[in-house]
């Protein structure tokens, strides 16, 4: 009986132990609860809930910087298109970013490029997740 309890205990607690919160989980949960610009602690260190792309856009609003981020966003979107997971609005956002750059609104161009790059990056994550989990809704 004691042994059985021990086995049950191991079975119950093992998954919990194996699922210690990863940085990505902690980031998502804090962003989800608090939005951007929030500071949280993970593994004893402090981090911000800002997306990588929001940080990338926080540079001087110059033509060069805008061009650079638009190019990065385009490359990321090409990557996600290659695995068949390109999102519908991303190309349009990139077009708007380019139009803003041409009209000299480099701040707007940077922000839009950041959003497009984020969409492409999350599309890649979505693809990677789907590869392992698409079966979850298959009727058994």
């Amino acid at each position: 009986m004691k042994k059985l309890i021990a086995i049950v205990a191991t079975v119950v607690f093992l998954p919990a132990a194996a699922m210690a919160e990863t940085f990505d989980d902690a980031f998502d949960m804090n962003r989800a609860m608090h939005g951007k610009g929030y500071t949280f602690t993970w593994s004893g260190k402090q981090y911000s809930t800002d997306h990588l792309e929001e940080v990338e856009a926080r540079v001087a609003a110059t033509k060069e910087n805008a061009e650079d981020l638009i190019a990065k966003a385009k490359a990321k979107n090409a990557e996600v298109a290659n695995v068949g997971f390109e999102w519908k609005l991303t190309k349009g956002i990139l077009k708007d970013a380019e139009a803003a750059m041409v009209s000299g609104d480099y701040r707007k161009a940077l922000d839009l490029a950041a959003q497009a790059k984020y969409h492409a990056r999350i599309g890649l994550e979505q693809h990677a997740y789907a590869e392992n989990n698409w079966h979850l809704s298959v009727p058994q």
């Binding site: 042994k3 021990a6 086995i7 191991t10 079975v11 093992l14 998954p15 698409w134 079966h135 298959v138 058994q140």
Partner: peptide
Amino acid sequence: MKIIKNITIGLSLLMSTQLVFSAQPGTT
């Protein structure tokens, strides 16, 4: 020692349930 044995049994139980689970939906 007993604990290790239990963990092993637990682990294999865990793994076998996962194996059964992933085999059913026919993903390969």
